[in-house]
């Protein structure tokens, strides 16, 4: 046990303020939770539909993020070419874009009158107003989180192990499977949890691109926003649910890191 060992004491003041900025609003939210009505509010058909849809779509999005994001992070971490910095900046763009802009971009690409929309329409595929659109919006916003955190881990200097493996005759695929991936496995897990949490909280892009219909596209954040119109208590109860899921997710991630 030690508090800020080796650091100047004054540092504690801004640090405490920083923590307070996050903790005070959460405490305020907890103070408004209608505990007595909680079971009733969380088990309405609309709430359960929203929860199931959120967990389901965020789960699928996380798998897609892993399948696409791990290769992308590897390529970004192990390449050197002109324009790499630009490519990375573009891929990470959704991190800094307002999600509603992401939604507009997705509409411009996959909407009926979008870049690929006409082709999709000819193929009989309509994305807007379906759960697939929800997943697409979630992957769009959470993929950069996974790529960014994983690329950092990949750059930590495991190159030598890979070079040794190669010198011992391992093919690139074998090196990837037996050396590179096992080394970054904890980071992959942490990145996946981060992506899942981000997908779970996705709001703006989903609302803009996918629409809002119970059981199909109305995820928990959309349900919270809608319930706020008529029953603020219900919105707070559902918010608590999201906070709990997010906290569990973050704890799972940090627990993995603690032993190091």
């Amino acid at each position: 046990m030690s508090l800020a060992a080796g650091l100047p004491r004054w540092l504690l003041i801004p640090a405490a303020l920083g923590a307070a900025i996050v903790l005070v609003p959460i405490a305020g939210l907890l103070g408004r939770v209608p505990w007595a009505r909680l079971p009733e509010l969380l088990t309405t058909e609309a709430s359960l539909d929203a929860l199931a849809l959120s967990v389901g779509t965020a789960g699928v999005s996380t798998i897609l993020c892993l399948l696409l994001g791990v290769p992308l992070a590897l390529v970004l971490a192990r390449s050197e070419f002109r324009g790499l910095a630009l490519l990375r900046a573009v891929v990470l763009l959704p991190l800094v874009l307002p999600p509603v802009v992401g939604g507009l971009a997705l509409l411009a690409a996959f909407g009926r009158n979008g870049l690929l929309g006409e082709t999709l329409e000819l193929a009989g595929i309509r994305l807007a107003f379906t759960s697939v659109a929800v997943v697409l919006a979630q992957v769009f916003v959470s993929l950069p989180f996974l790529v960014l955190s994983l690329e950092g881990a990949l750059r930590l200097g495991h190159r030598r192990y890979e070079q040794v493996a190669a010198s011992l005759g391992a093919s690139p695929s074998v090196t990837l499977r037996r050396v590179t991936l096992p080394l970054v496995l904890p980071a992959v897990g942490a990145a996946a949890v981060l992506a899942f949490a981000r997908a779970l909280g996705e709001f703006g892009a989903t609302l803009t691109f996918a629409g809002s219909y119970q059981g199909t596209t109305r995820t928990l954040p959309l349900e919270i926003y809608l319930q706020r119109e008529v029953d603020p208590d219900a919105a707070i109860a559902l918010s608590l649910l999201l906070v709990v899921v997010a906290v569990v997710g973050v704890l799972l991630t940090t627990a993995r890191r603690a032993p190091r």
Partner: peptide, 20 residues
């Protein structure tokens, strides 16, 4: 049997003007 139930009337209008 709507495909989407929007939060505001401007959102509904947006779905129509965008052709979705």
């Amino acid at each position: 049997s709507p495909v989407s139930e929007e939060q505001s009337v401007t959102d509904v209008l947006g779905r129509v003007t965008s052709g979705e």
